[in-house]
Amino acid sequence: MNPATRSHTHVIGMWLMASVALAFASHDAISKSLILALPVIFVAWARYLVHTLIVTGAILRKREQGAFRSKRPWLHLLRAMVLLADSLTFLFGLTHVPLAESTALVFLAPAFVTILSPLLFGIKADRLQWLSVIVGFVGVLVVINPTGDGFSLWMLFPLATAFFFAVYQLLTQLAGESDSPSVCSFYVGIFSTTLLSLVVPFHWASPSLSQCLLLLVLGGMGLSAHFLISKAYRFASSSVLAPLGYLQIVFATVYGVLFFGNYPVMTSMFGMALICVSGLLVYAKRTPASVSSSAEV
Rank of each mutant, 00 (worst) to 15 (best):
S192A: 15
I59N: 01
R79P: 05
A162C: 08
M221S: 13
L170Y: 13
I35K: 00
T193C: 10
L214C: 09
L105E: 09
S102C: 02
L99R: 00
H10G: 10
S182V: 06
L216R: 01
A29Q: 07
F157I: 12
S31W: 00
T267C: 07
E177Q: 15
W74S: 14
K62S: 13
V199M: 11
A236K: 02
T56V: 10
S210C: 06
Q248W: 01
S178V: 10
V97S: 02
L77Q: 05
T95Y: 11
V265D: 05
V40W: 09
S19A: 14
V140L: 14
S192C: 09
S294Q: 12
E296F: 15
T89K: 09
S238L: 11
P110D: 04
A242S: 11
V143N: 01
A46W: 10
S7A: 15
T287M: 13
L159M: 13
F163M: 12
L34R: 03
L170T: 00
R61V: 04
L195M: 14
T9N: 15
V106A: 13
C184K: 13
A225S: 12
R69I: 06
F42T: 13
P146F: 09
T161A: 06
G189S: 08
T287N: 11
L247R: 01
K32E: 07
V142T: 10
L131S: 14
P73N: 05
L258M: 10
L116P: 11
W154N: 08
A37S: 15
T103F: 09
D86L: 14
Q169F: 12
L83W: 00
F259Y: 12
S210Q: 15
F164H: 08
T287A: 15
F270H: 02
L120I: 09
T114M: 12
G245F: 08
